[in-house]
Structures are given as structure tokens and as C-alpha cells.
């Protein structure tokens, strides 16, 4: 009996593990990535791509959502640009937008400003696209007012980056910016004003340290793959030689 359990135990564990995984997968359809690098994202969609990306560049998309007004309160929600890896995402809480009496909804729009973007801020360069974030009430089309801060997440193209900035029609204003963990190319900020937004970096380009770190991040892993292959090959050769010697002597 004990021997039977001992013999069947591994098979039972295998079946149980698969059944549990199937159950969890069915309940929550997450892709089964346990390791490795995160999945590569679609390339950044530029309004004005660098020359080497011109042929493959896809134009950036816009985003729009209507938030209903119930009892005078604008419902919260999120809006994002319509790409497989959204380049701008807004989170607006309940009652954070104010509309006139009689409005039935607030329309929030994110538009890439590809024609005539504002000039870059002094001492900084714009990284990627400028996006115009706006909210109007419906019907009527009057601007909705931001009564409390909303959150914006913006994708940053590869290369240098320092912080997000807001252009209010007259000047750029630096925003307190947080970076997504795990080296994900997203930056976030909480702001209380609609306007034009952009990722910016200090003029003068990337520091040598960040260039080296980026290079190591890209090619260091590949170097490890090669190293792993060499070690595995050497181990295998040594194993076969040892086996051969044992056969000859045994």
C-alpha cells in the first residue's frame, strides 16, 4: 500500500499540478510566462520618427472616452490611446471633472500633436510626441474643469529622459514624475490641469553612465546566453570523456 502510494505519488503530483494550473488559468486568463525577459512591446509610434525608423514607424493613435454624468457628478474611469502598447493613459477619479448643470457626459480626449507642436522647453529636448489632453462637456462642447488631480502615464521612447512637462499655452511646467518599476518605459505624474504634455530630457544627450547601463542591459544578457552555451558544451564534452574512460577501464 505504502509502496503503491510512493510509486504513484509523482504521477498524482503531476496530474494535480496540471489540474490546479488549469483551474487557475480558466478563472484568470493570464499568459503563462514564468521567467525570462518581459515580452517586447510594439515600437514607439512617433509623429516624427528618427530617420532609421521612418520605414517601420506607425503613426501614433488618439484616445477618447465619454464619462457619464449622474446626479451632477462625473463618473471616473480611464482613457488611453488606441495602440497595442498605449502611449498615454489617463486615470480620472469620480467627481474629478466638473461640468455645467444639464451636461450628460464629459468627453476626454488624448490627441498626438503632430502638426505644429509647441517649441521645446528651454534647456531641454522633447522626447517622443507631444500629446494634447482635453475634456469637454456634452452637449455643448464647453471645457470641463478639473477639480482635483488626475493621473497620467506616458510611454517614453528609448534614450534619455528626465521628467514630464506640461505646456499650458504659454510656457512649459516641469511635473513631479515617477518612473514605472522594472525598467518599463513609462513615466507617470499627477496633475490638476489639462494641456499639452511631453516627455523631456536635458539638452546634451545621454550621460556616458546611462549609455553603458543601457548597453549592458541589452547585450549583457546575450553575452550570458553565449557563455551558458559554452559552459554547457564543455560540461558535455567532459562528461562524455569521463564516460569513455570509465568504459575503457571498466
Amino acid at each position: 500500500m505504502v509502496d503503491g502510494v510512493r510509486r504513484r505519488g509523482p504521477l498524482v503530483a503531476l496530474a494535480l499540478g496540471l489540474a490546479l494550473a488549469a483551474l487557475i488559468h480558466t478563472a484568470s486568463p493570464s499568459p503563462p510566462l514564468f521567467d525570462g525577459l518581459p515580452l517586447p512591446q510594439a515600437p514607439y509610434a512617433y509623429c516624427s520618427p528618427p530617420s532609421n525608423l521612418e520605414s517601420s514607424n506607425v503613426r501614433p493613435a488618439r484616445g477618447q472616452a465619454d464619462f457619464p454624468v449622474q446626479n451632477g457628478v462625473v463618473a471616473g474611469g480611464s482613457v488611453q490611446t488606441d495602440e497595442s502598447a498605449p502611449q498615454v493613459i489617463l486615470f480620472i477619479g469620480v467627481d474629478e471633472l466638473k461640468v455645467s448643470p444639464g451636461a450628460v457626459s464629459a468627453r476626454v480626449t488624448i490627441d498626438p500633436v503632430c502638426a505644429d507642436p509647441p517649441p521645446p522647453p528651454g534647456g531641454a529636448q522633447i522626447r517622443g510626441n507631444v500629446y494634447r489632453v482635453s475634456a469637454v462637456e456634452e452637449p455643448g462642447g464647453r471645457p470641463a474643469r478639473v477639480s482635483a488631480a488626475y493621473h497620467l502615464t506616458m510611454r517614453v521612447p528609448p534614450g534619455p529622459f528626465s521628467h514630464l512637462q506640461l505646456y499650458d499655452g504659454t510656457a512649459w511646467h516641469p511635473l513631479s514624475t515617477s518612473l514605472a518599476p522594472g525598467g518599463n518605459p513609462y513615466a507617470g505624474s499627477t496633475l490638476a490641469q489639462m494641456g499639452e504634455l511631453a516627455a523631456t530630457a536635458t539638452s546634451g544627450g545621454e550621460s556616458p553612465v546611462s549609455v553603458v547601463l543601457r548597453w549592458l542591459g541589452s547585450f549583457g544578457v546575450l553575452a550570458l546566453v553565449v557563455l551558458f552555451g559554452i559552459i554547457a558544451l564543455v560540461q558535455e564534452i567532459r562528461r562524455r570523456r569521463t564516460q569513455g574512460r570509465e568504459r575503457r577501464t571498466g
Binding site: P38, P181, G182, G183, N184, L213, L216, G217
Partner: peptide
């Protein structure tokens, strides 16, 4: 090491 990037962290 993850804040330095996924590549570095995986390495």
C-alpha cells in the same frame, strides 16, 4: 536590480 532595467535584472 530591476529598477536599472529588465535586461540588467535578468542578467
Amino acid at each position: 536590480i530591476e529598477p536599472m532595467g529588465e535586461g540588467m535584472a535578468t542578467a
